Simulated assay, not measured.
Amino acid sequence: MDSTFTTHLTSAIIAAKAAKLEERRERHRRNAKEHYWRTLQTEPRKAMLLNARRAARRFNVPINITVEDIVIPARCPAFDIPLERSNGVAGEASPSVLRLEPQLGYVKGNVIVVSAKAARDPLARTLLFKALKADPKVVA
């Protein structure tokens, strides 16, 4: 056999394996997205837990909460607006898991569900945290 032919054959095999691997990765990404959207529609607390896990990895903080620890109230404790899920991008009234003490992470007793608007607003978070420290039953 010619060494050039062997080199080309080896390159072709490597390229084919790489293409197959990339196709498998893309299929996995597509299936993961579909699974997430189905979960969001049927089990919003589970989807919120998946988002919290992703955020915990991103911010390198601990996480030990379960689906049972995520309690979605009827109204936002900070703005007193009704919480409702939206499709696609989170709206102002979408429920969001918030860490009371950010450095502690997503641990039991350190998370609360508020509206996405309250989660993004630093002043609302600060006032909510002060109210919770003064009287933890504010959220109940």
Rank of each mutant, 00 (worst) to 15 (best):
A15C: 04
P82W: 00
H8P: 01
A124I: 06
L132S: 06
S96K: 05
P122A: 13
C76K: 04
V71C: 15
L123I: 15
M1A: 03
V71N: 15
P73V: 00
F79R: 12
T39A: 01
L98W: 11
L40K: 12
R45Y: 03
L123N: 15
L21D: 08
E26K: 14
R75L: 12
R24S: 13
R54W: 02
Q41I: 02
H35T: 11
A56P: 00
S86K: 09
A78G: 10
E26Q: 15
K17E: 11
R29W: 01
S86R: 08
A15P: 00
K117I: 13
K20T: 05
P44G: 06
V71W: 10
N64Y: 07
H35E: 10
K133H: 14
E26W: 07
Y36H: 01
A118M: 13
H28L: 15
L21I: 09
D80R: 07
G91T: 04
A19D: 06
R30N: 11
H28N: 14
R54I: 03
R29Q: 14
D121Q: 12
W37F: 11
I65N: 05
M1D: 02
I81K: 05
N64R: 03
S11R: 10
P136A: 05
I14T: 15
T6N: 10
N51C: 09
R58Y: 06
